[in-house]
Structure formats: C-alpha cells, structure tokens
Design a protein around this nucleic acid. Sequence first.
DNA 1: ACCCAGGTGGCCC
DNA 2: GGGCCACATGGG
Length: 212
Amino acid sequence: MSKLKQIYNKLCKHFGPQYWWPGDSPFEVVVGAILTQSCNWQNVELAISNLKKEKILSIKELYNVKTSKLQKLVKPSGYFRAKAKKLKAFVYHLIKYHKGSLKIMFKQPLSKLREELLSIHGIGPETADSILLYAAEKPSFVVDAYTIRIGQRLKLFKRSKYNEVKEFFESNLQKDVKLFNEFHALLVALGKDYCKKSRPKCDICPLLKICQ
DNA sequence: ACCCAGGTGGCCC
DNA sequence: GGGCCACATGGG
C-alpha cells in the first residue's frame, strides 16, 4: 500500500467521515467555494444563510440581483466587493455559454472543464478543483494551504507550487472521487488541529508516527 | 490588540 | 516565472 494511502487510512480512523461538501446542491457548492477563499467556513455560512433568507441562492436570482445588494449579503465572508463580483462573473459565464445550466457545463471532460473554470474571473486552481470535485464530482485533487504545509512538514515533498503538489497526490492515489473528497477534507481537519500557520511545531501530530 | 481563515488577480521586475 | 500587495469580515 502506498504511503499516502496509509496516511489516508490513519486520518479516517482518527477523524472519521467528514461529509464534505457542506451544501444542499451543486450550485451552493460553487457559491461556497468562491466565498470561502481566504475565509473561515463559519463566515461563509453566515453569507450563505443571508442569500437563502433573501431567496437569491440560485443562478437566475444571482444574475438579476443588484450588485450592491449582493455585496451587502455576502459581507460576513469578507472581501465582499470582490466576492460579489466573482459570483456575478460565474453566473454570467454560465448563462452565456451553458444556458445557465451547471449540468450542461459539467458534461465536459475534466481537463477541458478545468481550463474553462480557470478562465472565469475569481476562479483560481483551488476553487476550480473544489468545484470539479465537490460539485461536478470529477476526480480532481484539491490542494490548499493546509495540504502544502502538512505535506512539507511530513517531508512528503519540498515543493510548494500548486500544480506540483496536486500532481504528487494524483499520481500516488487511485483517481477516485470519494477518496479525493474525503482526503482533502481530512487534511483540512488535520490542519485545523495540528498544522496552523501560527504553530510551526506540531509535536502531537498523530501522523508523524506513520511518516518517519 | 493582535492573528488568522478551506485564495485570487493585478501589478512589478 | 516569482514576489508583493489589496481585498475585508468575524472569531479566537
């Protein structure tokens, strides 16, 4: 069994199932993926709850809502002007090229869809992969700050570039949606407990036992 | 009063 | 191709 798979198994045992992505629909996953950029999930929930309360958590409603109103609703998730613009950019794109249908958009093969997502304003590699994995359910491994920090701390790799780390995970694991889904969520869980930026030493990190 | 969170785009060199 | 910086709120 590969080292990565062993780490995955340990994490599963330690943290249990993570039930990601928290969201009721693929579109809510997309919205959450944009809103959670450099922001904790708790604040995203406040913003999403605002959108639900106003009944504008849908492609059509987001397209029609005034930008100033959208800004006010997403305010709790921070960068509210930037994020309102990004949400608008996504729904405009969806309506212009895919009849406003995520289902149609997601019909494309993974690599082509990834490229298209990356071309949309406000969608970078992590957000694109989150959408691919958690909304479109395609096997695209999601890398975030925790993934890189944990990997380096466990000496799995030295590199810190997004695509290199992504490639490391994808080439050492089965391309399985469920596995990628759970693994990323578990790395976030581990990071929150043991691999904070503010705590450079993680002496109680349970994973160190596997990795030496 | 800090410090940070499930990043990205736009500069500059 | 990398290194900065702005973007902004709520919780510890």
